[in-house]
Design a binder for these strands. Structure first.
Length: 262
DNA sequence: ATGGTCGAGATTCGA
């Protein structure tokens, strides 16, 4: 028995609906974490996706951000919002407990702040958000459950996760403080699925629309699955569904899928 | 080819 968990920044679920329906019907992932749905909850195209056999929870926002979780199995708990700042209005975090056939799995859909320009208030917000995420992850890890924190982390973990480290040197996605905050999540005991199972250089999950990056093969790897030991122990494979980026009306991000023997 | 990225939604901002 295997369970597949995917993450995909769709860059507007309404603009991407046809692409998303095609990919869901083809890849048939059990659980999907979506980011940048760019709509309020009422605007999410629920029925079209429900028809493919998914339960859906959303944490939406007008125009920007917004996250969702799709699941073939029942969703028992829906926990919108990252703890640690009551003032934070941005819809970037949605956690759920899913009743998978072989037991419950806790999943979160994460849209970590971009942080540019750095330095500045947006970068401060990114680092503060990452600190909140680490503190919350610490709490979740104490539960000793299968846990997957899946999303657009807006962090390039290594120089070899982009096509040209010099281009990204001063960017919020690659600055040492961003990488240190990402490393902190791993030191807490979370395993980054791609690094663990594959680790090859230059395997990208994002190609900017600008400057013909896709046609030039110039991407970055910023979408990640972070797994608790109880999930990482059952990790079997990780796949970057690169062909989606070449489709008409593609998102600038590529879906990645983890397969677990759970 | 006088352009050059896309999305939401308002005529600009965020990525």
């Amino acid at each position: 028995m295997t369970l597949t968990i995917a993450t995909w920044n769709v860059n507007s679920i309404k603009a991407r609906l046809a692409n998303a329906l095609d990919w869901l019907a083809e890849a048939k992932p059990d659980i999907v974490c979506l980011q940048e749905i760019k709509t309020v909850d009422e605007g999410f195209p629920r029925e079209e996706i429900e028809r493919l056999g998914y339960n859906i929870i959303t944490h939406g926002q007008k125009s920007y951000n917004g996250v969702a979780i799709l699941s073939k199995f029942p969703i028992e708990e829906a926990l919108p919002g990252l703890p640690g700042d009551e003032e934070d209005e941005q819809a970037r975090y949605l956690e759920a407990v899913i009743s998978a056939p072989n037991g419950p799995i806790r999943v979160a859909s994460i849209y970590l702040p971009n942080g540019n320009p750095a330095p500045g208030p947006k970068y401060d917000y990114k680092l503060a958000w990452m600190d909140r995420l680490a503190r919350h992850a610490e709490t979740l890890l104490k539960l000793e459950e299968p846990l997957v924190l899946a999303g657009d982390y807006n962090v390039i973990p290594r120089d070899s996760d982009c096509w040209d480290a010099e281009v990204w040197e001063m960017d919020a996605l690659a600055l040492p403080q961003s990488r240190a905050a990402f490393d902190r999540l791993k030191w807490l005991g979370l395993t980054e699925a791609f690094e663990q199972l594959d680790g090859r250089a230059h395997q990208y999950t994002f190609y900017d629309y600008q400057a013909g990056r896709w046609n030039k093969g110039q991407g970055i790897r910023i979408d990640h699955l972070l797994c608790s030991p109880q999930a990482a122990d059952h990790l079997e494979s990780i796949d970057i569904h690169k062909a989606t980026r070449g489709e008409p009306k593609a998102s600038d991000h590529i879906p990645i899928v983890g397969t677990f023997s759970l």
